[in-house]
Nucleic acid binder design. Sequence first.
RNA 1: GGGUAGGUGGCGGAGUGGUCAAUCGCAGCUGACUGUAAAUCAGCCGACUUCGGUCUUCGGGGGUUCGAAUCCCUCCCUGCCCA
Length: 423
Amino acid sequence: MLGYSVDTSYKSCYYSAVFRLTSKTKKIRTGLLKTKSGVTHTPFFMPIATKGAVKNVSSEDLKDMGAEIILGNTYHLWLRPGEDVIKKAGGLHRFMNWHGSILTDSGGYQVFSLGSRAEKKFGKSGVSINEDGVEFIDPVDGRKHFMSPEKSIDIQLDLGSDIIMVLDECPPFPCSYEKARESMELTLRWAERCKKHFEKKTGSKLSARNSRQTRNLKIKNKNLPNRPLLFGIVQGSVYEDLRKECAERLVKIGFDGYAIGGVAVGEPRKHLYEILGWLAPVLPEDKPRYLMGLGKPEEIISAVMNGIDMFDCVIPTREGRHGRLFVWKIDPNDPALFSSLAKGLFYETKNISNERFKKDFTPIDTYCDCYVCRNYTKSYLHYLLRTNEPLFLNLASIHNLNFYIILMKILAKRKNSYDDTYH
RNA sequence: GGGUAGGUGGCGGAGUGGUCAAUCGCAGCUGACUGUAAAUCAGCCGACUUCGGUCUUCGGGGGUUCGAAUCCCUCCCUGCCCA
């Protein structure tokens, strides 16, 4: 199952100016990712703030729970309030009072998600793609908007993003080989245009060199990059040659990091681990790897064991809002937890709306030390949800995000890899 | 006391001779959610069931009819108006 295996000790790890591997074992690599806003420990999970807010959670809540980086969405912020507003506000960080790092998704996923949702609802897609870019119909007011690779970069720069994603196309699943290749070629052409435009606008030059050439670069304390990072996205559906080729060609173009896209759009999970296995040897070791849109805790763990450093997912917030809460089955501070991590026995979910919690006056999770578990009972959470009290949404989201962040901390701490110099 | 409107499954409220075990909403029970058009969506929600059906329901009783929640008679109850 584990397709990724590198036996290199801490000291001889490669690193680039913005990413440093602090530990790399057969199973888990950990490191530090520097952006213009700060240093983030990898592997990490990004709470999703699509519209410039993690739903029902304040920036202060996020800071308190130890989040270091969040994700915002170009498409949504472009339409409302508009990148000009955010630019005038001093950037997204100031606008939402979040001073950690921010990664912005390019809008590529919306090509897929808005199209398929509109199709289900109205029978027509509302999204059309051509060589230049994508035309969207705003689902809120029906107006047409056009997004190109260059436009996406411009918006993300205006937002003040720390990690900018290239505009890509997510092919649907299932997808024929021919379609997948066509889509991948478009994604690659767009990636190249994104990089060219990014370099022109930022006046910088992204390195396409491989890890061996960058191994001797020193990383200085707090010496943060003065430009955003730009990530490429690997597509290619479930086809091995396409995925590998896409990764190789992206690496040749050269990006600060590499994302794997398209895996959260319906591809069965067995393909995911296959894809990670194909890509692990192709992606440069000294660059961060981001698996877009994943996932369940056990999926994240498997991916970390396959060499992935970065994750984002709506699961903790959305499922929390819908009443499903994540609960440890083993004390996360117990070293015995590690042996059960890969088996997926370490947690369960509880649907707090279930009748059985009506008179359960114990905390959601006795092992959890988030402030929801320290201060409230299942009975109260059950009651808040049943009576549609907005407080429920806040508490449930905080608890679930905390679970994910603790999970990532456990993974990162496994080899005692925190380098406090970079806090 | 007179007049009038009405009594439908936990609640609200459709239905006004057969396709009605009875639209729909709420409440209730359960499930789904993976780069967020999502505080959303789906299923169940009289009883029994070998999940194909079977049985008893639309205030009570009686009647008309091949057939009634729906029509008639009567009783009971509720709202409103007049005394």
